[in-house]
Computed example of a mutant assay.
Amino acid sequence: MKKKVLIVCTTASMVGNFNIPNIRLLKRMGYDVEVACNFKDVSSWSLNDSNKLKKLLEALNVKCFQIDFVRSPFKILSNCKAYKELNKIIMQRDYNFIHCHTPIAGALTRLSAKRNGVKVIYTAHGFHFFKGGPLKNWIIYYPIEKWLSSYTDILITINNEDYLLAKDKMNSNQVFKINGAGVDINRFRKKMNYRKGIREKLNISDNQIVLLSVGELNRNKNHKTIIEALGSINNLKLESMKTD
């Protein structure tokens, strides 16, 4: 019988943005790959984006399952419904292992995998609890992740802080770090003609400083901080002009 693996994410965007290389790799290794996520979630992707992903997965001969995951851990009824949907699939499909991502999908998958005796890998794309983070995140998310780590055969982290915490505090059989955050600045070089053209198009003079903040438009990305920082910079400039 051919080897079979399931990739589980809360949203389609997590599949499309992060897991296509994983899927291609697993296919090359001889696995049948299946995907379970909420293709209807439009918090960061449109339905058109999700449909494009489905077509790509179909071209890769990947079977897709719609699971009505929600992002909030407080929507108990919705999460119970999603768990039942997912558990039914895992019970019937005889997977060699499951690779799950994102807090909600990761939690429900590990509960079902434990129940059905399936090996599971969990990639934590940045724990919600971190040094200097909100106390409520430590109170809510840390105990859950610590508990579920006992049901995790391999825990993959993407930054050093999470890796050290997982090695010290979590109970996974194995913990790894794969650098997943940041930008290799050596890949980028200033293209002066392009820079000049963009500045002229946006009516920005050559001596003005431009700051760019990139991230999904939700509370978790904390755009509030960069907006407040920009305000502080402007205020500092005004104060400097007054003293001069």
Rank of each mutant, 00 (worst) to 15 (best):
A105Y: 11
C9R: 12
A113S: 04
L56H: 08
I185P: 07
N207E: 13
L56A: 07
K88V: 05
N17P: 14
K190C: 11
H128Y: 11
N17I: 13
K201W: 15
Y122F: 01
K221R: 05
L6V: 03
V5I: 09
S46E: 07
A107F: 12
V175Y: 00
A229M: 09
S43T: 14
V5P: 10
C37M: 01
K55H: 08
K4E: 02
G126F: 01
K131E: 06
P103F: 05
R219G: 14
I185R: 12
T10Q: 12
S46Q: 09
G231E: 05
G133E: 05
Q92K: 09
I158S: 03
K201Y: 14
F39G: 03
P143E: 06
R199L: 01
N17H: 14
D162A: 02
K190Q: 12
N220V: 15
K146D: 04
R199G: 04
S213N: 15
I204W: 05
F74P: 09
Y83D: 01
I67T: 00
D94C: 00
K27C: 01
E228G: 05
R28C: 00
V15C: 08
K177C: 08
I156F: 02
H128Q: 14
R110P: 07
N38A: 01
G126A: 04
I139E: 09
V33Y: 00
L56D: 06
D49Q: 06
T243V: 13
A105P: 08
N159S: 06
S43I: 10
Q208R: 15
Y163C: 12
A181T: 15
L111T: 13
S205R: 12
I156A: 03
D244N: 15
G180F: 02
V175L: 01
D153I: 03
A105K: 07
V15Y: 13
N61D: 03
D153H: 04
L108Y: 01
T152R: 05
N116R: 14
L57E: 00
N193R: 14
Y141M: 09
V210N: 09
L212F: 08
L211D: 09
G133K: 10
V35R: 01
N61R: 02
T152S: 02
D162T: 02
V62P: 00
F97Y: 02
A82K: 04
E200Q: 12
K3N: 07
T225R: 15
P134L: 04
Q208P: 12
P73I: 08
D68E: 03
E145K: 07
E145A: 04
K84A: 13
D94L: 01
K191S: 15
G106S: 05
A82V: 04
Y31W: 02
I154W: 04
I198G: 12
S43Y: 09
M14H: 15
A59F: 01
L148T: 08
N203G: 10
F18D: 11
S43D: 13
C64E: 04
D244V: 13
L202R: 13
K27L: 02
L135S: 11
K146R: 06
L108V: 05
C64D: 03
F97D: 04
L60N: 00
S149R: 04
N79I: 06
D41N: 13
Y95D: 00
H125M: 11
L155N: 06
R93W: 00
G126D: 05
L202T: 15
F188K: 08
C37Q: 05
M1D: 02
K54H: 00
P143G: 06
